[in-house]
Every structure is written in C-alpha cells, then in structure tokens.
Simulated scan of single mutants.
Amino acid sequence: MDYLIKIIFVVLIAVYGLVMNMNLSTSARSTKYLKEDLEIAVHDAALFQDQQKLANGEFVFDKNKAEQEFKNSFKQNTGLTDSEFKIIEFKIFDQSNSTFPVTYKATNVKFEDVFSSPTIVAVIETTVNKYFTGGYSEETVRRVASYSYKVNLDQSVDTTTSIIEGLKTNEKGLVWAVPFTKNITSQFSPDRVHPITGRVESHKGIDISASGVENQPAVAVRDGKIAYAGVINGYGNIVIVDHGNGFETRYAHLNSIKVTTNQKVKTGQVVGLIGSTGDSTGPHLHFETRVNGVPIDPLNFYK
C-alpha cells in the first residue's frame, strides 16, 4: 500500500511539473510573439505622416491616422478584441512637439530611451491567456515598442545640381530615372519576398541597377518640387518629388542627395547619386510612382 501511495505521489508531482512547465512555456512564447506583433503595429502607424507638413519640409506624424492604424494593425495581428487589451501609452515625437534628442521614460513599464529623430512609441497591456489561445496564466503583461525614422533634420546638403541634357521624354512627358541603365532587377509587386527580412511584403516600386551603377545620377523624371529630401528608415537617403495633380515620384537608397526640400527641379535634373543606403543589399535605385498617395507600377508610365 505504501508503495502505491509513493507511485501516486510521484505521478502527481510529475503532472504538476508538466503543467507548470507548460505555463512557463506558454508565457514565454506568447510574450515573445506579442512583442513582435506590437513592433509591427508601431511600424504600420509610423507610415502616416502629415503630407502637407512634409511638403513644407517638416516631418510630422498624422496623429489620428497613426493611432487608428496602430490599433487596427495590432488587433489584426494578435486577434485580440478591444476589450482584451489596453493601450497604456501612445506617444508621438516629431518636429511639431519635440526638439531632438529627446529622452522618453515610460510611466507604466520599465523602459527608457533617447530618440534623436521622429519616433512613435506605444505601450500595451493584456494577459497571457487572452493573447495565447490555450494558455492557463492570468498573468498581466505590458510590452513597449518604438519606431524611429532616421531623418536628417539638417537640410544643409550639397545642392550643386545639374541637368542632364539630351534625355528623351516619352508620350507622357517623362524621362527615365536612371540615364546610366534601364536594367530592372526587381519588379513592382504586392507580394515580393523581402531580400533582407525574408518576409512577404509589397514592393511599392521597381529597382534599377547594373554593374557600375553606384554613384551614377538619378534624375527627376519631370518638372516638380522637392516634397522631401532626407533619410527615412528602410528607404535610406530618399528624395520625394511632387509633380502636381497628385503625381509623386520617389528615389531611394541614394548615396548622396543633391537637392533640398521645397526646391524646384526640372526634368532631367540630378536629385541624387545612386547607392545602397537603408534596407538594401547592393547599389540600386528604388524608384516609385504614386498617384494621390497610392503606389502605382512605374512601368505603367513608360509603356
């Protein structure tokens, strides 16, 4: 009888240990995934800048749109409903309210950082069992994530620009963005595998590259005004040209920028030299065309 009791006791201890191990494993996995989902949501929120401010050379987030996009993205990625999580803090630091660098210290979680450029930071609260289906723990977790743009707030750049003569315009009045080559290494695509992250993400433009392309000029494809010239995460050094009537072109991953915000440019004018800044695996020009903010395949304008 004593032997049977010992066996039962050992089994109970083993079961208890297994349950506790499952709880710890569930908590560890869920909070890891929660952090990743939160980082994605903050990144998505940071895509919303005030376009009017940007056109005037000021980097300012559209707070209402950014916060709404953060909530939508977080709910979509986690599957949580409004009642299953709380947004403890949602802070925006940009040129409308901050002088950089700025020190941020969260009030509800142990987190402190110094931001040297426009940043969005968010803190959320939920419980393990709400986030991770099948979880047993009622543990309350708070997580924080931030996303910063590496924006060059100093516009004192080299503005020694030139217009490349002899470039032929097509029937839409556009010249090709890279006089050096017409070779396209990556097409516009809604579901391209990102060469760095390995994730399936939309490729909102085309990549133009060939041997020897580094430091070759990228030119404005039509007359316009520089809406932004500086640095944006992912894009690296980028120039955005407003051509009017909602038509915009973007020239990214530049080694150097040759224009400044609000400057008027002519067709064929050099806006920068091709490079590999930002999320890039080699020298190329990432070229985008947008109509009313919506990315359109650039080749639609060159057929």
Rank of each mutant, 00 (worst) to 15 (best):
W176G: 09
R222C: 00
K258A: 10
S209C: 08
E171Y: 06
G272S: 09
I232L: 13
S280R: 02
N255K: 14
E288H: 09
I226E: 04
V294Y: 01
V259Y: 01
N255W: 06
G268L: 12
P195A: 00
F287W: 05
I206F: 03
N255P: 10
H203E: 12
I208T: 02
K258Q: 15
T185S: 08
A210G: 13
T289Y: 00
N262W: 13
H284Q: 12
K258N: 14
H284E: 09
F188R: 08
E171N: 14
L254S: 02
G244W: 14
G275D: 02
G198N: 15
T159K: 09
Q269Y: 11
E214M: 12
K168M: 11
G244Q: 12
N300K: 15
V178P: 04
I238R: 05
R222V: 00
F287L: 08
E201Y: 06
I206A: 03
G268N: 12
E201W: 04
L167V: 08
A220K: 02
H243G: 01
K225P: 04
K204N: 15
G212W: 11
N215G: 04
G198K: 14
P295D: 12
K258W: 08
D207A: 10
T185A: 03
D207S: 11
T197S: 15
N215L: 10
V291C: 05
G212A: 12
L273Q: 05
T281C: 01
N292A: 14
G275F: 02
P283H: 01
V221I: 14
V239S: 01
S186V: 10
N183Y: 09
I238A: 04
L167K: 14
P283R: 00
G282K: 02
G293K: 10
V221F: 00
N300R: 15
G166K: 06
G293L: 14
G272Y: 01
T185K: 01
V239Q: 01
Q216M: 11
L254Q: 02
R222L: 02
N292W: 13
Q269H: 10
S211E: 15
K172S: 12
T261E: 12
V270P: 03
L254V: 06
Q216G: 05
G278H: 07
D191Y: 12
N170P: 06
N237Y: 06
V213P: 00
V175D: 01
A218C: 11
I232K: 06
D223T: 04
N170K: 04
N245K: 08
G198L: 13
Q187D: 15
D223E: 09
H253D: 12
V259A: 03
K172E: 13
S280W: 05
D279R: 05
N170V: 07
A220R: 02
K172T: 13
H243R: 01
I257Q: 10
R199S: 10
H194S: 14
V157H: 03
Y302D: 07
E288P: 11
I163F: 09
N170R: 07
D223Q: 07
K264Y: 15
Q263R: 08
H243D: 04
G234N: 08
G282N: 07
H253T: 07
R222T: 01
H203L: 11
V157D: 02
S256H: 05
R222E: 07
L254F: 06
L254A: 05
G230C: 03
E214L: 14
S209Y: 04
I274Q: 02
